[in-house]
């Protein structure tokens, strides 16, 4: 069962999140219409692992770009303009572009991996969370735990509390 609490103002929302976290609830989602820095701090989200994807993508792209040029040149020995077969300066430009292309694509993949999107299942959600409400969701709570969570959310000043069945 999931408990969904709606808040009208940011402080109440953050208070509920902090209390839930300190009471040992780990499966909480904090929905907000705009990014809230404090909510991210509550969940302890520091540096995002997306950055590893970006770096890996850029490095792979650089090697791939240069490698593609060199392998092409060696596969088809077609001299042009009296230049060498492996002409480094123009290949660096291709390398540069491939670095950026792969960097961007890997960052995109990283985003999908880290944010767990696209979502393949239904998750508790209220459309008002995308307009002007803040929503706290406690997922997969046992019945006794659920009651405790509900109390914390109510005490923090929730406008509305709903119970949603977990969908698998």
């Amino acid at each position: 069962m999931a408990i969904v609490g709606t808040f009208a103002c940011e402080e109440d929302f953050l208070a509920a999140a902090e209390n839930l976290k300190s009471s040992g609830f780990d499966t909480i989602s904090l929905l907000s219409p705009v990014p809230v820095q404090e909510a991210q701090d509550v969940l302890g989200l520091g540096k995002s692992p997306v950055r590893h994807f970006s770096l890996a993508g850029a490095i792979i792209g650089a090697f791939f770009g240069f490698g593609m040029c060199v392998v092409t040149a060696l596969t088809f020995i077609l001299p042009t303009g009296g230049r060498a077969i492996i002409t480094v300066p123009p290949y660096l430009i291709i390398t540069y572009e491939m670095t950026i292309l792969m960097g961007v694509i890997f960052t995109l993949i990283g985003f999908h991996v880290v944010s767990e999107l696209p979502a393949w299942r239904n998750r508790p959600y209220l459309p008002c969370a995308n307009i002007d409400r803040f929503v706290v969701v406690v997922e997969n709570a046992a019945d006794s735990e659920a009651a405790r969570a509900e109390t914390i959310i109510r005490e923090a000043g929730a406008v509305e509390i709903q119970h949603v069945e977990d969908s698998e």
Binding site: F76, L78, P79, T80, G81, G82, R83, P90
Partner: peptide, 14 residues
């Protein structure tokens, strides 16, 4: 030749 390096598809080469 300046023309040879310009071709993107190797239509002109030495």
């Amino acid at each position: 030749a300046p023309c040879e390096t310009a071709c993107p598809v190797f239509a002109t080469y030495h």
